[in-house]
Design a protein around this nucleic acid. Structure first.
Length: 869
RNA sequence: GCCGAAGUGGCGGAACUGGUAGACGCGCUGGACUCAAAAUCCAGUUCUGGAAACAGAGUGUCGGUUCGAUUCCGACCUUCGGCACCA
């Protein structure tokens, strides 16, 4: 059994086979035990695992294995978020069907997962592109239609006029289609939406109960929902003299600052505002339509980024609005800093109290009237804080809050407006004009309109054997697929050919894992496993996915399928995996990125990098920035090669050791070497310990001081590692503590009977502490140490508190806050006694000599600060 | 632009509740073993001065609170994530 050489590949494959043969990680519903559902965000099957996957799934596996050892009934499933744009791109370049490519990737990546030794219950594997999965989300959607929670409205998309297709934001590069190069247009088409805004308030207040979610995520979600209280009111369209137009048209605006309405010096309509074209005067029409056409070219994010604080773009449209508060007309503009999607798509502009309005007013020479008195020394532009109202007639002198109330009451009394809570959150657009997605289960009847596909006709199956050219969706070009009958009146009708946003699949998969094979969307098993105890995924999902996930859980709750308001109790967001970049510049100035695996870095005698050369041709390369691993920068590291070379345990160990999980992880070849060295060292040390034969049982009564010191370290380490894994998620410090203990064990050469018994206890602890991180080598060492029960079924080590008691503590002595001595004192020493001990120290004497002691700060067992003057 | 993070030795990082800055690992330097190399082991390694004891400086920048600040407060700089059709 006890091989002398550590050979990870042989051990890992053998141990993995034992796990498989014993079905070691199969989860069963068991009402008696404490359940623990540990879920990592499911991967998109892009082709091969990358380091980001390895990191994400190792974190999940460590947490799962830890809780399993603590006796909990653990569910850790895995599946595939299999619909999506990359399959269509691959289909174009490889001339395969998206399905073929996707399934091949799944097969390959599943093998890679198995090689990494993750403790998944593969019997629950799900693949979102299969009808047996997506049929249930189609069913849910048809029910939402009937409840009015799914509805259809016109909405803008990126339109490629050459390819005659809709583009994702990602496919628009500098305003042009990625394949055709044509200037992309914004086009309005009818699309399906889910009323997530009905849940805005609940999604907002629910965040307060998510105590174990990162504050950053909760803050981002709060801001995304963007609740604001204010007023909505109407203003009449008029001419420059305040004479209302013939049709008595009204523009409705939302404002959070009705108290500042007396300072309104202009108003703005969003470029997409439906009234814009008709309100614009004949003389201004040409300029306005040019501006609108330009503004609508850019995506929202680009528009907001371009609308810099210095100069805001917009044009006067020739019309005016009557300010109800002053009875005077203000000029009406259209500007790209006003979005149709927020509020009413129209604003009253008050430059005195809003910085964006201030900037616009300055660049368009519009008047500025302050209606809140800034402090006397205020030098800046808009004053957005509190202060007494000025220039505001009957509001003068009131604070912002009081003036707001009075202004709203004034509007309501006159029936001109009302108090209004507005949310930035918008309804979820779920239509995609793409092929590789779940078909939207709707039939369009010339007589009945949009009709949900009846439940007995679901699923609407997406054909998988198609030839995909990339320009049009095969189900849009195939007239036969589309042709059907109206389920209500029986006349010829057509199917919806759009598919769902892939966030639809990833919004409920967590619940489906609980009940594989259920002949409904979910069954009772979901109520046993949910909520998810621990959810793990990338921080890039902080808003969109996690908001839809929380929303969909409420839809499932309202359908009676799950209990509780929130889908996941704890959330951990891991950072990105980054690596050095290296490049060579060719004579024509082109940059050629060199993979880190092909680069050798030269260092000086202090270890500072001097330069780098490319291994394959010996030519110098330039060291670039540290960036997210990507194909474009050629700085990706293939985990498969590392697993082949160092073994799964080593790759897992490095990815957990290099940085805390929520920060970015910097790739380092030598760091992997270090992880490998540590595993070999543990292996050799345990094998050396075993060579001396079996140990006698521990006898705590007869231990020497040194033996007690080792035991104290062992039990301190058990306590620290438990806390680091379960509460702090700082796997890096857990590993550091285990390394520290290992270093002490390597120096502890006590070959006496009790010395060896202490060593045996220590190694049994180390092997269990490391097991969640490096399970293969630990399983092997565990049985080598003489344990007959497999480690995957073993218990987490217990802390012997009596072993942790200290006989001495280090107390730092400071003089005026600077460390001057360190004393070894008995625990619990009082201030006077500690002070007397401190004054015996030569260095402390030197720094206090001839000076008056003004103050003494004593933190028992830690610190004594003597303040002298 | 808006929202959210991060910034500590040559490098990744540690310091958990305001109390020893630099744990652990990498790299580097020196040594042992070796014919030699690799591997392994031992010692050193924030900077400046010093043989040492020790002293001074030091956690992106500037300022503040405190006996004491990597930690709290204010302003700024840089980098990263998200911004609704990448997932």
């Amino acid at each position: 059994m006890s091989e002398k050489i550590y050979s990870p590949a042989e051990i890992e494959l053998r141990i993995q086979q034992i796990w498989a043969e014993n079905d070691a990680f199969r989860a069963h519903e068991d009402a008696a035990g404490e359940k623990y559902y540990c879920l990592s965000m499911l991967p998109y099957p892009s082709g091969a695992l990358h380091m980001g996957h390895v990191r994400n799934y190792t974190i999940g596996d460590v947490i799962s294995r830890y809780h399993r050892m603590c006796g909990r009934n653990v569910l850790q499933p895995m599946g595939w978020d299999a619909f999506g744009l990359p399959a269509e791109n691959a289909a174009i370049s490889n001339d395969t069907a998206p399905a073929t490519w996707t399934y091949a990737n799944i097969e390959h990546m599943k093998a890679q997962f198995k090689r990494l030794g993750f403790a998944y219950d593969w019997s629950r594997e799900l693949t979102t592109c299969k009808p047996e999965y997506y049929r249930w989300e189609q069913l849910m959607f048809t029910r939402l239609m009937k409840q009015g929670l799914a509805y259809r409205k016109d909405s803008e998309v990126n339109w490629d006029p050459v390819d005659q297709t809709v583009l994702a934001n990602e496919q628009v590069i500098d305003g042009r289609g990625w394949r055709s190069g044509a200037l992309v247009e914004r086009k309005s088409i009818p699309q399906w939406f889910l009323r997530i805004t009905d849940y805005a308030e609940e999604l907002l207040t629910g965040l307060d109960k998510l105590e174990a979610w990162p504050d950053a995520v909760k803050t981002m979600q709060r801001n995304w929902i963007g609740r604001s209280e204010g007023a909505e009111f109407c203003m009449t369209v008029c001419d420059e003299n305040g004479v209302p137009d013939a049709a008595n048209r009204q523009v409705t605006v939302f404002t959070t600052r009705p108290d500042t309405a007396f300072g309104m010096t202009y108003a703005v309509l969003a470029p997409e505002h439906p009234m814009l074209a008709t309100v614009t005067t004949h003389e201004r029409a040409a300029e306005v339509s040019t501006f609108v056409a330009e503004a609508r070219l850019a995506s929202e994010a680009d528009r907001l980024a371009e609308a810099s604080s210095e100069r805001k773009r917009g044009v006067f449209i020739g019309a005016y609005l009557l300010n109800p508060f002053t009875g005077k007309p203000v000029p009406l503009y259209t500007a790209d800093y006003v979005l149709m999607a927020y509020g009413k798509g129209a604003i009253m502009a008050v430059p005195g109290q809003d910085q964006r309005d201030w900037d616009f007013a300055v660049s368009h020479n519009l008047p500025i009237v302050r209606t809140v008195q800034p402090p006397a020394d205020w030098q800046g532009g808009a004053w957005t804080e509190d202060g007494p109202a000025i220039n505001s007639a009957w509001l003068n002198g009131l604070s912002v809050i009081a003036a707001k109330e009075k202004a709203i009451a004034w509007l309501e009394q006159r029936g001109m407006g009302e108090r209004k809570v507005n949310y930035r959150l918008r309804d979820w657009g779920v239509s995609r004009q793409r092929y590789w997605g779940c078909p939207i289960p709707v039939i369009y009847c010339p007589q009945c309109g949009a009709v949900p596909v009846p439940e007995d006709q679901l699923p609407v199956v997406l054909p998988e054997s198609v030839s995909f050219t990339g320009v049009q969706s095969p189900i849009k070009t195939d007239p036969d697929w589309r042709k059907t009958m109206c389920p209500q009146c029986g006349v010829a009708a057509e199917r919806e050919t759009d598919t769902f946003d892939t966030f639809m699949e990833s919004s409920w998969y967590y619940a489906r894992y609980c009940c594989p094979g259920a002949e409904s969307q979910l069954d009772e098993r979901a109520k046993y496993w949910l909520p998810v105890d621990q959810y793990i995924g990338g921080i890039e999902h902080a808003i969109l996915h996690l908001m839809y996930f929380r929303f969909y859980h409420r839809l499932l709750r309202n359908a009676g399928l799950v209990e509780g308001d929130e889908p996941a109790i704890r959330l951990l967001c891991q950072g990105m995996v980054v690596a050095d970049t290296y490049y060579q510049q060719t004579q024509d100035g082109a940059v050629r990125w060199i993979n880190p695996a092909d680069v050798e870095v030269k260092r000086d005698s202090r270890g500072k990098p001097l330069g780098a050369v490319r291994r394959s041709d010996g030519k110098p390369v330039t060291i670039g920035a540290v960036e997210k691993m990507s194909k474009s920068k050629n700085n990706g590291v293939d985990p498969q090669r590392l697993v082949d070379h160092y073994g799964a345990d080593c790759v897992r160990l490095f990815s957990m050791f290099a940085s805390p999980p929520d920060q970015s992880l910097e790739w380092s070849d030598s760091g992997v070497e270090g992880a490998s060295r540590f595993l070999r060292r543990v292996w050799t040390l345990v094998m050396t310990h075993l060579e001396a034969g079996p140990c006698v049982p521990l006898d705590l009564a007869v231990l020497s001081q040194e033996q007690r010191d080792i035991r104290r370290l062992v039990h301190n380490t058990v306590a620290k590692v438990s806390d680091d894994i379960s509460r702090r998620y700082t796997f890096n410090t857990a590993i550091a503590a285990i390394m520290e203990l290992t270093n002490h064990l390597a120096r502890f050469e006590d070959q006496s009977e009790q010395g060896r018994a202490v060593t045996q206890e220590a190694w049994l602890a180390v092997v269990r502490l490391m097991n969640p991180i490096t399970p293969h080598i630990c399983e092997e060492l565990w049985s080598a140490l003489g344990e007959s029960k497999p480690l995957y079924a073993a218990c987490w080590p217990e802390v012997d508190e009596s072993a942790r008691v200290r006989s001495q503590v280090t107390v730092v002595v400071q003089v005026n806050g600077k460390v001057r001595a360190r004393l070894e004192l008995e625990p619990g020493m009082e201030q006077d006694k500690a002070m007397a001990m401190a004054l015996r120290d030569g260095n402390v004497q030197r720094h206090t000599a001839g000076k008056e002691v003004r103050k003494i700060i004593h933190v028992p067992d830690r610190l004594l600060n003597i303040v002298v003057g």
